[in-house]
Design a binder for these strands. Sequence first.
DNA 1: TTTGACTGAATGTCAGACAACCTGATCCAT
DNA 2: ATGGATCAGGTTGTCTGACATTCAGTCAAA
Lengths: 253, 253
Amino acid sequence: MQAQKTRKLAVDAMRPVHRNSLSDEIVDQITGLISRGLLKPGDRLPSEKDLCLRFGVGRTTIREALRSLAVMGILDGRVGEGTFVSVDSRKYLEKALQWGLLIDRKSVNDLIETRLMLESQTACAAASRATDADLDEIADALAGMERSLDRPEEYLEHDLRFHLAIARATQNPILFNLLTMTRGYLQTWIGESLAKPSPRKMRVRAESSVWEHEKVLQALRKRKPDEARQAMTEHILSSSLDFQAQVEANPRA
Amino acid sequence: MQAQKTRKLAVDAMRPVHRNSLSDEIVDQITGLISRGLLKPGDRLPSEKDLCLRFGVGRTTIREALRSLAVMGILDGRVGEGTFVSVDSRKYLEKALQWGLLIDRKSVNDLIETRLMLESQTACAAASRATDADLDEIADALAGMERSLDRPEEYLEHDLRFHLAIARATQNPILFNLLTMTRGYLQTWIGESLAKPSPRKMRVRAESSVWEHEKVLQALRKRKPDEARQAMTEHILSSSLDFQAQVEANPRA
DNA sequence: TTTGACTGAATGTCAGACAACCTGATCCAT
DNA sequence: ATGGATCAGGTTGTCTGACATTCAGTCAAA
């Protein structure tokens, strides 16, 4: 019993050992160089062959390390030129969030809800922060929509531009990125479902949609956050209803 | 002038074209499989040699793709066994801790803002959708916080559990995932900065924090979405202010 | 039942090669 | 001299074959 107790404790004290791969080691070294300022954004790294010699490993290993950093947006490799430290290492966060969006199963309803939250909030934030240039861009997109009421694919393009311009106006790249992604996912569905119905109904829908967008823009111009959020929420809800009705009518995987 | 205008428009319509590398294509395909549920956490992928045949590319390319996914914690390669879909998609948090030093202050602010939006909205949605089990879990986390007012790291753990339980109560996996990630990144900072101040101040802060959380829970129990959002917004704002004050006081590279 | 050795398979790493591409210099025709 | 075509060298992307390291499973011996 005493022996058992002792053995049990000894076993509990043992931790699984983890052997670091060579490429991970190199990743650590490079991130170290960057965070210590020895490698600054925009700097060019030595060529892969050169790095092989310096680190004393094969090219495969170097490439795996560089790939890891590139995936996170810390490095940026260009064919024929070399590998560079990304100008803004902030990209790392956005990339990571994007991956987070990628992995879980996306149901259309969840996406719509997420988009609703993001868009209404970005509209709110944009109302107090948008520069004049931002407002011009937004207005220009809206004008484009009005111009292309009868050409669905062109209309959608300006529609997308409208929403992204608002996201950009928040001056928050993370929000902009999240919205870009959710919107990107939905865009394919939207395109499919809007092409289906009769041109007449489509035209009617587009006209009321333009009106909704206009209300959003007016709220932004007046710098009224709550009003902007309200207008955007209404727009998303109404377009979502419309969109879901299409999905119901044309059920697809 | 007319010609210039035309050229300007044409130029604006041109987007930088980026050549998709083979490995990126494979990354897309695999993430697609995962997000469509054809590959579930814990599943084992075919061996690299096998994947070479299926995708019709060399092993280098396969390995670069797998490496990308492994870096983000989506896949997990084990020597001699194979490559598996990660069970715990939270592994990026470890990586975040590792590379988190690269993130600057503006990014932190952006992240806080994003979190504010997400949390207030999830609280709102949770109020109308939370099951009794969800509410129990939330209440349990809160009880844990009260129990560990003097043990910061344990307190933080329950704090995190509280917020994630609310996110889960929305029944929207996308929101849950986004919140998990944003919260995860901030957690490292929060942990760092909260360990610093005097235990007395810490205790005061924790007590008022518990009170804020309680208000959120009450609103959820009453099924009042707006009240829940309001309470959560206030909580995040107050804790963010507190947190940023810490950051200002301890400026780090 | 436990231990040890063996086998087959999978990942990690290496080396060499070629393709695609970019930069910069050179050369030629105008 | 200027503008355009061409060439050389370097760099990343990809392929191939090979070897090392590690693991799961099997089976026989203690």
